[in-house]
């Protein structure tokens, strides 16, 4: 029970040839797809995985990134410093100080796990990609270079319409609202007190 073949379409001889010519001619009139890279920089989306940037003020030397890195290309050195007690009689605190933060981009496979895993938003993707070197050693970017990449990190893309508010902004807003409410309350109390004062003075004057 073979399916009967569809009735052959009436074909003009040579229509296939004409179609081939039409395709090439149409392509010729369209815009080319060539990327003229060194002359024209590519427009990369903000999430492009070009290079990893370090915002070292946020780094607490928790070592999560270095430990999660699949090919161990992140090098971190640090030491502990004790901070004297803030109040007399208080306890001394110890603090981690970053000595070295380096990423070896000859090993890095751009998986982005370090960025995902950083709890304090110290690592970012930057779309910069032109850092080829003639010496492989120079592909190990030390902290100052990683810091410089930080200035190339683009703004994050805007949230979708109706998206949930980011937690930190929500927290900040709540705090701000609370403060606002407090201030308003204080102002109201002041006003009431003033009004009470005025009413009293008036009463005294009338007497």
């Amino acid at each position: 029970m073979a399916v009967p073949p569809p009735p052959p379409r009436p074909r003009i001889p040579g229509s296939g040839l004409a179609k081939g010519l039409a395709v090439t001619l149409r392509t010729m009139t369209r815009k080319t797809v060539t990327a003229q890279y060194p002359d024209v920089q590519p427009e990369l989306p903000p999430r492009s995985r070009g290079v990893i940037a370090l915002f070292e003020e946020n780094c607490t030397v928790c070592m999560l990134c270095a430990r999660e890195c699949p090919d161990w290309c992140i090098y971190i050195d640090s030491h502990k410093e004790t901070v004297p007690a803030a109040t007399p009689g208080g306890r001394e605190r110890s603090r981690n100080v970053l000595d070295r933060f380096a990423i070896d981009f000859s090993l890095c496979m751009y998986c982005g796990i370090c960025i995902e895993v950083c709890p304090f938003d110290a690592l970012f993707w930057s779309p910069e990609f032109e850092y080829a070197e003639t010496d492989i050693l120079e592909l190990t970017h030390e902290r100052d270079k990683l810091r410089e990449w930080m200035w190339t990190v683009p703004e994050p893309p805007a949230l979708d319409l109706g998206a949930e508010e980011p937690k930190e902004i929500a927290a900040a807003r709540k705090t701000a609202e609370k403060l606002e409410a407090q201030r308003a309350q204080e102002a109201q109390q002041n006003q009431e007190a003033q009004q009470a004062d005025q009413a009293q003075q008036k009463a005294e004057g009338e007497e």
Partner: peptide, 13 residues
């Protein structure tokens, strides 16, 4: 040039 543009390329530049 024509061949390049027919293939969506730019050709020699």
């Amino acid at each position: 040039k024509v061949m390049a543009h027919m293939q969506g390329r730019l050709g020699p530049m």
